[in-house]
Design a protein around this nucleic acid. Sequence first.
DNA 1: TTTTTTTGTAAAGCTTACTTGACATTTAAA
DNA 2: TTTAAATGTCAAGTAAGCTTTACAAAAAAA
Lengths: 67, 67
Amino acid sequence: MKNRIRVLRAEKKWTQEDLADAIGVSRQTINAIEKEKFDPSLPTAFRIAGLFERTIEEVFQFEESDA
Amino acid sequence: MKNRIRVLRAEKKWTQEDLADAIGVSRQTINAIEKEKFDPSLPTAFRIAGLFERTIEEVFQFEESDA
DNA sequence: TTTTTTTGTAAAGCTTACTTGACATTTAAA
DNA sequence: TTTAAATGTCAAGTAAGCTTTACAAAAAAA
């Protein structure tokens, strides 16, 4: 699973912590998702997409090689 | 999190097991997701939506009351 | 109605999403 | 260049997604 969080976050000039606080997860979680260490849960994905006013598909790109 | 899996599955006349096999999860997992006992992971949500040729937003409806 | 298929559900176990806390490294600001 | 802010990462713990096995209940087919 790829994602465009880092780019979208930069556009808004938000820190990882800003984003984390806005959606109610830890800063480490945002860092891990951005660095693609693991995939977010579906609710977390919805919250991230919602905050950026994008669809999930615009933020996350599924690849068949995903777990 | 609400979802329209049961309806979409009925349209295709697939059993829970058909769907489970098609996306590579257990029948119990499909049953639990349909009955909203838990949310699917993001990869599982992508696979379900993809199989029905719908966006994630068309299949799953996020509600702020979600965990 | 009897049989078969489908769905519902539970327990125990494994994996992964996510947490807090801590500390090192990189980047930006003073 | 010194300081502060932002990012990267690790360890240990909790919670949730998902598995297999098993069996009961409901629905559909014979």
